[in-house]
Simulated scan of single mutants.
Amino acid sequence: MAVRAQPIRPVVWVGGLAALAVPTLILLSIGAVIVAAEPGRGLGPADWAAIRFTLVQAMLSALISVALAIPVARALARRQFRGRGLLVTLLGAPFLLPVIVAVFGLLAVFGRGGFVNAALEALGFPAFSIFGLHGVVLAHVFFNMPLATRLILQGWAELPAERFRLAASLGMDARAIRRHLEWPMLRKVVPGALLLIFVICTTSFAVALILGGGPRATTVELAIYQALRFDFDLTRAAFLSLLQLAITGLAAFAALRWSGLAGVGAALDRPLRRWDAGAPALRLLDAIAIIAASLFLLVPMAMVAFRGLPAIPTLPSAVWTAAFTSLVVAFCSTCLVAMLAISIGL
């Protein structure tokens, strides 16, 4: 214990400056746009439509992603099988993929020339278009359902094995365990996952640009780009930027407020055994959830690889130059972010 005042270490000053750097840059950028904007002009009907669309697609994407992730996470928590660790690792792949690459994969599966529409036409059903609100939501679910699954699966992993042993000794079935053990955990984990995915979806740009299908499917990010790039309307861009910052800031604050697993309980690190998961119906439901999620996530990525790998030898030199530039930028950005994070953490 310190007996006298201790001098502030230089690393603390560096961490404080790093913590202030990001919000300062954001506020300065918005302030510069506001200063350059012309007074007396506001948002039009198209801008308010973009705000409504942003909120609607973000809410739908978050709700559907989490709703689909819960049975998948429960199945992965209840089952141990060969390749489970690899599958859990692959769940992070869609979130790490470049957006355009993932969208091309979705178009190869669900697009006009995809095999889903080909199968529908072969069965006599009309083909459907992936463009529009449903296409944007589909792409966001593809990106964010794996993230929600990993977050909720972590909640199941935090449940002490002793509680399941006690439940088995009391003769609880799957319904009782769901009510007394899993539901309290989900109440703590699901709100944070919902809000986190909502924040991510409100900042959607490339997905709405490619799959939006027209002006009716414009997000706030896309509206800001249009105001600056095509109209050079700094007033609209400033207003939209402030609204975007307010939406994401409030949602991020709520996500921090609701995230975490406090109160789930401590354990003795015993191996987890699920005595309630042996019923054939539960095995079938878990198998369906795991197989359906795997197909939904892995088939688009496999289509990208199937169509892209044969063309790698024929790529022009400009593509390799761009790839090298991307790697250099990514490496420098990673080093900078790591140094800032370490200084803030210390």
Rank of each mutant, 00 (worst) to 15 (best):
F125M: 15
E221K: 13
M303K: 12
F95N: 04
A246L: 15
S65T: 13
V190D: 00
L284K: 14
R257P: 02
F331T: 15
P39M: 09
I70E: 05
A227D: 04
A267L: 02
A75N: 02
L243D: 01
V220Y: 11
G308T: 09
P7L: 12
T314H: 12
A251N: 13
T202A: 14
V56S: 06
L297D: 07
A93R: 12
A73I: 11
L159N: 06
I152M: 07
R273M: 10
L55M: 13
F81E: 09
A139V: 09
A75T: 05
A323D: 06
R307Q: 14
I130G: 04
A289I: 12
A119T: 07
L138Q: 03
N144H: 03
A157W: 00
A32E: 08
F306P: 01
A49D: 02
T203I: 05
A330D: 09
P313W: 01
F128H: 06
Q154L: 13
A73H: 01
G42P: 06
W275A: 14
I344N: 10
T314M: 13
I64A: 08
L209W: 05
L250P: 06
F230N: 13
T314I: 11
I152T: 10
P300M: 14
A119S: 05
Q154T: 14
T202E: 04
G213F: 06
A108S: 04
I152Y: 06
V11P: 08
G249A: 12
R179S: 03
F142R: 09
G212V: 13
I210N: 02
R41N: 02
G15P: 11
A58E: 00
G114H: 01
L17P: 07
N117E: 03
A157Y: 01
G124F: 04
L153S: 04
I288Y: 13
W258T: 12
R79W: 02
A292C: 15
A279D: 10
N144R: 03
V190T: 09
A36I: 06
L91A: 07
V207D: 03
A252Q: 15
A168C: 02
M145V: 07
E182S: 11
A77W: 03
R270G: 11
R216S: 15
A167V: 02
E158K: 05
L28M: 10
G155D: 00
I290M: 07
A254Q: 02
R216I: 07
L43D: 02
E162Y: 00
A292F: 15
C335M: 12
D269W: 09
M301Q: 15
A102P: 02
S259Y: 01
G214R: 14
L336S: 10
A305H: 05
G308S: 07
L186V: 07
